[in-house]
Design a protein around this nucleic acid. Structure first.
Lengths: 211, 211
DNA sequence: TCGGTCAGTTCAATGAACGAACTCAACCTA
DNA sequence: TAGGTTGAGTTCGTTCATTGAACTGACCGA
């Protein structure tokens, strides 16, 4: 009857928060979006890092693409391979992730900080609201540098977790074991996987990121 | 084996966001917290407004009390009645709710705004990050006034929804049909249900709110 | 004593999530 | 060209969570 057709809807809730939760409120969804901010783009990398069942991951990816949080784009033709990249709409979820992480860090006891987030331009650690206390301005995710914290497992089982041990800028495509087979010709240059795959298009970001 | 014992845990996720979602990521939980911000405090009011199954509501309330997001407090002895009130830890979730609602309002198309949030001190509608554009400062939830928007159903089925049609300050205990039977002696004075029940303690807020 | 309210609990049916196995196309390599 | 591998899923039986309806039990008011 109801043509809304969103996966798990919250019936007659007259509320923007409920609408948001219909889109990103299901299990695994926000962690998937988090990984997308961390630079994860490929099905197998999401799978390795999240540990979600394959069927759930496939369903969530498809739903997020349909809603416009992620964009699925072909990055090579043979064999055909797609990657999932945050759109503008997906990038706008950064405050949600920030506030959730911020809440857990300050309000849930008994854990060392896992990761620190810094303003890449000036190096200052981000403050309340994800803003830079030094510059006094909100920092878009593309300008955030993530650094490992004391609470982080120093030797994660999955390659994605290992790649995320090093300081990284958010949204920069992740390099995992799968790229190791590609640097026959890439050599020691600081090319991102996307740049390698696209044979030197943009400098490693997406339109949304660099724009 | 794992002594973590949180309802739905996200296995070996080394991440504050995952920790937060273990606490508030289950279905209904964030909507329940939202209602607590709106002034809902009683089981039957949560039930009427959320439409969640009774068993789920009872489980969520208990979990949130155990984690310290809500406090369960006795407000009358005969018959014994408890109310669920946000603690400091719960109040700290306001940015999460704000950012979720804000994202849905700006990024999800096709709906009129349901509610507007204003800085109660100066009347300005809140801007990005839940801050007051006029005063330039973040506004704590206790200083937020909620006003109905154009997208709101003007005649909700449940009494809680009806009570939320009028402009209200967040966190002020909600008056529903159940209080109608109490204003035998309360008269036209502007006493909140809590104040009535407590026979005139604070001016209507809780320690956490006024502190 | 009767009926009603509030705040739950119990329980059968349904729906998601889980994990292991399977598919399928395309490449690699011998 | 046969055989193996990889990436990206799909299928499917089991387990777990959610749902909605009915039930419980303390208390009140008439």
């Amino acid at each position: 009857m109801d043509p809304m057709a969103l996966g798990k809807d919250y019936a007659q809730q007259q509320c923007s928060i409920a609408r948001a939760l219909e889109v990103v409120g299901e299990r695994w969804t926000l962690l998937l979006v988090r990984d997308a901010f961390y630079g994860v783009r490929r099905y197998s990398d999401f799978l390795a890092h999240l540990g979600a069942p394959r069927a759930v991951l496939a369903a969530r990816l498809q739903a997020l693409v349909e809603i416009g949080v992620l964009e699925r784009r072909r990055y090579q033709e043979s064999p055909p391979r797609d990657e999932y990249v945050l759109t503008e709409r997906g990038l706008a979820l950064w405050p949600v992730l920030w506030s959730l992480g911020s809440w857990a860090r300050t309000e849930l006891p008994g854990t060392l900080p896992m990761r620190h987030f810094h303003h890449a331009d000036c190096g200052t650690e981000l403050g309340p609201g994800g803003a830079c206390p030094a510059c006094g301005l909100p920092v878009p995710p593309a300008d955030v540098e993530m650094r490992p914290g004391a609470g982080l497992d120093p030797d994660p089982a999955d390659p994605v977790g290992r790649a995320l041990l090093r300081p990284r800028r958010l949204l920069v495509p992740l390099e995992t074991a799968w790229t190791d087979r590609l640097d026959r010709g890439a050599g020691p240059r600081e090319l991102s996987p996307s740049a390698v795959r696209l044979q030197g298009g943009e400098t490693g970001g997406t339109e949304e990121v660099t724009g």
